[in-house]
């Protein structure tokens, strides 16, 4: 299996706080990988290091063996890394369709065009609409984000990211805030993606994690605590002690 995304002993400090400690991690082609850990473990920070939102204090980030540690966010996106945010980052004054349009136009290279109307890019509009349809969002495509229920906004967040047709997909708690009756939409959408895409998902919902993941990494206080198949992780008494027990209590 080829490795898509890799970190070599990356660390990130916020002042005295060591949010990421020498994490070496691999995400393979076709991976369905889950990253779990208690709140404040540094999961989001790790995603921020992968996507270039934050620069690491030390260590390297590699994409298909190419060092991208210094690369800006947007360039990484062009190379196929896309993510959702734990807290929605949407264009709140625009319609759902216009939100997705933004991502698709950027990917197909239509966004820099100045002298033709955005509405004339039929291919971009059509693709955006199909994506919304696949996420059961087509019926609200003309709604402005501001008035939508949070669960719907979460799905738009996912739609924008899928509009980038990534090779590496990083999902930061995509199901948080989505009514449980709708969380299957997220898994269905991921199932429908090409099998070669590497997906890393962060979530606290253990049912979802164990249904989805073929591999699980447990992060505790910024460092990798354990890694293995769901079975191994589920059977690991230390993991149960620090995390799983806690999570079940949360419900």
């Amino acid at each position: 299996m080829t490795v898509l995304l890799e970190t070599q002993s990356v660390s990130k400090n916020f002042g005295a706080l060591r949010a990421t400690r020498e994490v070496s991690f691999k995400l393979e082609e076709g991976a369905r990988h889950a990253l779990i850990g208690p709140n404040g473990a540094g999961k989001t920070t790790f995603i921020n290091l992968l996507t270039g939102v934050l620069p690491p204090n030390s260590g390297k980030v590699l994409l298909k063996d190419r060092d991208i540690t210094q690369m800006a966010q947007a360039e990484r996106v062009k190379l196929g890394i896309a993510r959702t945010f734990q807290i929605n980052r949407l264009f709140r004054g625009l319609s759902v369709l216009e939100n997705v349009y933004m991502a698709v136009a950027e990917r197909v290279g239509a966004a820099p065009k100045m002298l033709t109307p955005a509405g004339a890019q039929r291919d971009v509009i059509d693709e955006s609409m199909q994506l919304l349809e696949s996420l059961k969002l087509a019926d609200i495509a003309h709604h402005t984000i501001v008035g939508l229920p949070y669960g719907r906004q979460r799905l738009v967040e996912l739609a924008i990211t899928l509009g980038l047709k990534p090779e590496v997909l990083l999902l930061d708690e995509p199901a948080a805030g989505v009514p449980s009756a709708e969380s299957h939409i997220i898994l269905d959408a991921i199932d429908a993606l090409p099998k070669t895409i590497g997906v890393l998902i962060i979530d606290h919902d253990m049912d979802l994690v164990f249904r989805f993941a073929k591999r699980i990494t447990v992060l505790v206080r910024g460092a990798i605590f354990a890694e293995g198949t769901p079975k191994e992780i589920g059977a690991n008494p230390d993991v149960r002690a620090v995390y799983l027990g806690q999570a079940t209590q949360h419900g």
Binding site: V53, E98, M102, A111, A118
Partner: peptide, 25 residues
């Protein structure tokens, strides 16, 4: 200009700069 895809992306920057970075703009 403002109705072009470029203009649309300017609106995107205004509405959410971080997200614009994250869609590769």
């Amino acid at each position: 200009l403002v109705y072009s895809p470029f203009g649309h992306s300017l609106t995107g920057i205004r509405e959410n700069t971080l997200r614009m970075h994250a869609v590769g703009a």
